[in-house]
Design a protein around this nucleic acid. Structure first.
Lengths: 202, 202
DNA sequence: TTCGTGGTAGACGGATCGGTCTAAGACGCG
DNA sequence: CGCGTCTTAGACCGATCCGTCTACCACGAA
C-alpha cells in the first residue's frame, strides 16, 4: 500500500508539474495530453488513471498553483505582521505588493496562470473558471482583511482599489514585460492608503 | 474592379467579424477555421484567398478591434478636451476611465481580446503578440500624453499608475464579472491625480 | 512456483486541426 | 453563343486532438 501509494503519487505529481510548465508556456488548448505525456515520460493510461479528463488535470494544476501561491503570499504577509505594531495593516499590504514584485521579477515568471486560464475558459460554470474565481476570491479576501486594519474610512473600497493595482501590475508585467509594474503599483498603493487613512482621521 | 473589390471586401469583412465573435467567445486555439467558415457561410478557399493563414486572420481581427477601440477612445477624450479649460488633462483622464466603464458595462463585453491573445500567444516575436503590444503601447501613450498636461510632478509615473488601474479594471471586470471595477478605478485615479498635482504645487 | 492484481505501453477510434488542390460554377466581354 | 477569368465548394492531406481498449509486465501472496 505504501509503495503503491508512493508510485501513484509520484506519477500524479510528475503529471501536474509537467503540465504546469507546458500550460504556462504555451497555453491550455495549445498543449495536448500527448505532449504532456511524452514530456513526462508516462503513458496515457497513467494519466487517465489519475484524472478523469484533461480538464480535471487542468483544475489540479491550478489548484497546485493556488496552494503554492497562498503559501508564499501568506508567509510574506505573516513575516511583517509580527514586527509591525499600530501600522500592521499598512505593513501587510506593502508586503503583499513586495511579494508580487518578487514574483514578477522571477525569471520564471510568465504571467498569472489564472489569468491565462480565465482567458481560455470564460464560461462562468466551467470547472476551470471556478478554480480561477476561487483563487481571485481568496486573494481579494486577504487584501480586504489587511485593509480593514489600516483604519481606513472605507476599507472595502480601499481593498478594491489596491486589488485592481495588483491585477494590473501582474497583467502589465506579463504582457508588456514591464518588470517595474509591481513597484509602480506599490507606489500608487502608498498614495491610496495614505489618502484613505487621512480621510478617516478628518 | 469595383464590383470585384466590393465582393472581396465583403467576404473579408464577414470573415473578420465572424472570427472576432468566435475568438472573443471561445478563444483562439479553441476555434478552428472550419467553425469560422461554417458560421460565416463561406468556403475555405475564400479565407485563404484573403489571408495567408489563420494567424494572419487573427492579426487582422486584432487590428480591426484596435482601430475600433482607438476611434471610440479618442472620440470620448476629444469630447471633453474642448470644454475643459485649465484642467484639460484631468478631464481627459477621467473621460478615459468613463470610456472604459461604458465598455465593461456593455452586455457584449467579454474581456479584452488583446489580453486573451496575449494569454494564448506569449512569445515576444509572435505576430499576434506584436499586435497586442502595439495596442497596449498606443493606449499607454494616450494616458501619458494626457497625464503630461495635468501639471503633475512626475507625469510618466502618474501615467504608469493610471495605466495599471485601467488594466486591472478591465481584467477584473472580465474575470470576476465585477462591473463596478471601472468606477473603482476612476475613484482611485482621482486620488492619484490629486496627490500627484498636489505634490507638484508644493 | 503459480496465481492474481494493479499499473503501463502503445495501438486504435472518430473527430478535428490548419492547409492544399481540383473541378466546376458565375460572370463579363467579344 | 463561346471564351477566359475569377471565385468557390468541398474532397482530400497528414498531423494531432481527447479518450478507450487490449495485451502485457512486474510484483506480492500463498
Amino acid at each position: 500500500m505504501a509503495q503503491r501509494g508512493t508510485k501513484r503519487g509520484n506519477a500524479r505529481v510528475q503529471l501536474i508539474d509537467t503540465a504546469l510548465d507546458l500550460f504556462d508556456r504555451h497555453g491550455f488548448h495549445a498543449v495536448g495530453i500527448d505532449k504532456i505525456l511524452s514530456a513526462a515520460g508516462l503513458a496515457k493510461m497513467t494519466l487517465y488513471h489519475h484524472f478523469d479528463s484533461k480538464e480535471a488535470l487542468i483544475v489540479a494544476v491550478l489548484e497546485k498553483r493556488d496552494a503554492a501561491f497562498r503559501e508564499k503570499f501568506t508567509a510574506a504577509v505573516a513575516a511583517v505582521a509580527a514586527s509591525a505594531g499600530a501600522d500592521a495593516g499598512r505593513a501587510q499590504l506593502f508586503a503583499m505588493f513586495d511579494a508580487i514584485e518578487a514574483w514578477v521579477r522571477d525569471p520564471a515568471f510568465r504571467g498569472s496562470l489564472f489569468d491565462k486560464a480565465a482567458a481560455e475558459y470564460g464560461e462562468k460554470e466551467h470547472p476551470v473558471k471556478k478554480a480561477v474565481l476561487a483563487h481571485k476570491g481568496w486573494l481579494f479576501g486577504e487584501v480586504r482583511r489587511a485593509a480593514a486594519t489600516t483604519g481606513a474610512a472605507d476599507p472595502v473600497k480601499l481593498a478594491a482599489e489596491l486589488f485592481l493595482l495588483m491585477e494590473g501590475a501582474v497583467l502589465a508585467a506579463a504582457v508588456t514585460g514591464d518588470r517595474t509594474a509591481a513597484r509602480r503599483a506599490k507606489a500608487a498603493a502608498e498614495t491610496l492608503i495614505a489618502a484613505a487613512t487621512l480621510a478617516a482621521r478628518a
